[in-house]
């Protein structure tokens, strides 16, 4: 589902964020990505979502060779991926419902179908009663869960999360991680960047460790199956 072959990412200015990273995640697998700040976790996720392009090496995601994917096809590629950020990227000029509905509007669903799916997603994250609320009126845990609902509402094949529990207390963090485990159980390939080792080591999923742009603490070519 996700495959990296000797991937190098160098940002303008010469700093190498990732060097010679190879890994493979099968469809339906789940893994955590850990490492210090600046170890390259975010860069790795951005490469998968085509927010950044690799300097060298091959990346294949969801059956697409990202190196040769033309710009105009990027939106269609991203529709197969759900992305969750630490600061949840919600739009503050519209309601929770409209935030979650955005991917479905873009995909071209009709209003009744959108309402049905948005409510199902909000129900899943336990915020059905907040659909009319404005994001600023929610706690940060709730905002994060709205962000998760938006990432899964269009049933993507891949779920990426960058420090989704960064601002949350341990109990809320565990709740969020349980949610990801549930999504993975229904077959969504899930990759979560987190430095909360204490939490993720208890969840029984493979952990990839990045250090200074290199994959350490894993096989030379880790293969992660469901």
């Amino acid at each position: 589902m996700i495959q990296f072959q000797n991937v190098v990412k160098r940002y303008p200015g010469g700093q190498e964020a990732l060097s010679q990273v190879s890994l493979r995640m099968d469809e339906g697998a789940m893994a955590f990505l850990t490492g210090h700040s600046g170890a390259g976790k975010s860069t790795l996720l951005k490469l998968i979502a085509l927010i950044e392009r690799p300097t060298r090496g091959q990346i294949t995601v969801n059956g697409q060779h990202l190196n040769t994917l033309p710009r105009r096809k990027v939106p269609y590629f991203r529709r197969g991926i759900g992305i969750i950020f630490q600061d949840h990227h919600l739009l503050h000029d519209r309601s929770v419902f409209d935030n979650v509905a955005l991917p479905l509007v873009i995909l071209g669903y009709r209003r009744p179908e959108i309402a049905r799916r948005v409510r199902a997603a909000l129900d899943k994250v336990g915020l059905l009663h907040k659909e009319k609320a404005q994001p600023v009126t929610l706690s940060s845990g709730e905002q994060q869960r709205v962000g998760i609902a938006r990432a899964v509402v269009h049933k993507p094949a891949i779920l990426l999360a960058d420090e989704p529990t960064g601002n949350l207390d341990p109990a809320l963090s565990r709740e969020i991680m349980e949610l990801f485990l549930q999504f993975n159980q229904v077959g969504v390939t899930t990759l979560i960047a987190s430095h909360d080792l204490e939490l993720i080591t208890t969840l029984g999923k493979p952990i990839l460790k990045l250090h200074a742009g290199k994959l350490v603490h894993a096989d030379p070519q880790p293969e992660i199956a469901p």
């Binding site: 969801n62 197969g80 669903y109 993507p156 094949a157 077959g187």
Partner: peptide
């Protein structure tokens, strides 16, 4: 990848939605 394509609504709905979107 079948899932990626599977998340799109049927073509006639998308065409209608295109008009609605406009």
């Amino acid at each position: 990848m079948s899932r990626a394509r599977g998340n799109a609504p049927p073509i006639h709905t998308r065409f209608q939605a295109w008009g609605v979107n406009h």
